[in-house]
């Protein structure tokens, strides 16, 4: 595999060390090609590295420019990764029960030295909502949703909704006044779902004789909250959705999204 290396007569100690290191068996077992400084190795690095192989080998010049993409999709993905990491750390400290939820957050603030995980998770989440919205904005303004990228735009819209839902379910977990009332205001809307909410238009029509089928204890809001108000059931539901359900779905969709960016011909550009 190795290519002929040009030997620099003025080799410094660092380059000598580097050259030695990249020749060891350990290094070569991890990276199966030379440093990417020739056309051949630049292809190989993309093909042999699992983290890089979602990239193409070469791409449009306009596509790598900040001017064109604003890097908003990439930033959304970075924020998602960092949220996964900080979220995982938070899960070590947090128990989703009425008894512990709030005190665990207080403990996280008071007792964990140098703790900024909660901050990074919260601000990262806000930032991700913003970057995903701005990413959509840029994709629209460059007309990148046009054929052949229609489907990827639709996948994106679903991910936008999932991002909002992830943020919404996470908002409840600190179990303070801010949390439960924001979720109460938000989830009250489900009460008014046509036909499926007990205060929604048409729900009164769904009845068997005198027995209403849709009431406060079985309607859409009840399904969302696992109760008729934001309580223990809602906390558990939101926790499970926030930590497992929604991240799994959005991760799968991201894989589809990135795959399709490539299969649709890479970052868009004029023909």
């Amino acid at each position: 595999m190795a290519e002929t290396k040009t030997i620099d007569p003025k080799e410094t100690a660092a380059t000598r060390l580097w050259n030695w290191l990249t020749e060891t068996q350990v290094w070569k077992s991890v990276f199966r090609h030379d440093r990417p400084d020739s056309d051949r190795t630049r292809v190989l690095v993309m093909l042999s590295n699992v983290f890089l192989h979602l990239h193409p080998v070469r791409m449009r010049k306009s596509g790598v420019k900040l001017r064109y993409t604003w890097c908003m999709g990439g930033m959304s993905f970075f924020l998602f990764l960092s949220l996964t990491l900080t979220g995982l750390l938070l899960m070590f400290y947090y128990r989703p029960t009425l008894e512990y939820a709030y005190t665990d957050i207080v403990a996280l603030r008071e007792h964990v030295p140098l703790g900024i995980m909660r901050e990074m998770h919260r601000w990262g989440a806000h930032a991700m909502v913003i970057t995903v919205m701005l990413h959509m904005f840029r994709v629209f303004l460059t007309g990148s949703y046009k054929p052949p990228r229609e489907f990827n735009w639709s996948v994106g819209v679903i991910m936008l909704v999932l991002t909002l839902l992830l943020s919404f379910t996470g908002y409840l977990l600190p179990w303070d006044q801010l949390a439960i009332w924001a979720i109460t205001v938000g989830s009250n809307m489900a009460r008014a779902t046509p036909f499926l909410g007990h205060e929604g238009p048409g729900a009164a029509l769904l009845r068997l004789g005198d027995v209403p089928l849709i009431h406060a204890y079985d309607d859409a809001r009840f399904a969302l909250l696992g109760g008729s108000f934001v309580g223990e059931g809602a906390l558990l539901r939101f926790y499970v959705l926030h930590c497992v359900g929604l991240p799994l779905v959005i991760a799968v969709l991201m894989a589809v999204h990135f795959w399709r960016v490539r299969k649709d011909g890479g970052i868009s550009g004029p023909l």
């Binding site: 990417p36 070469r58 449009r60 010049k61």
Partner: peptide, 19 residues
């Protein structure tokens, strides 16, 4: 458009990966 002039391909390593 200016993007048309930037249609030629660049290497993802280093151009994109470093960005």
């Amino acid at each position: 458009p200016i993007e048309k002039e930037e249609s030629d391909r660049v290497w993802v390593w280093p151009d994109l990966v470093y960005t």
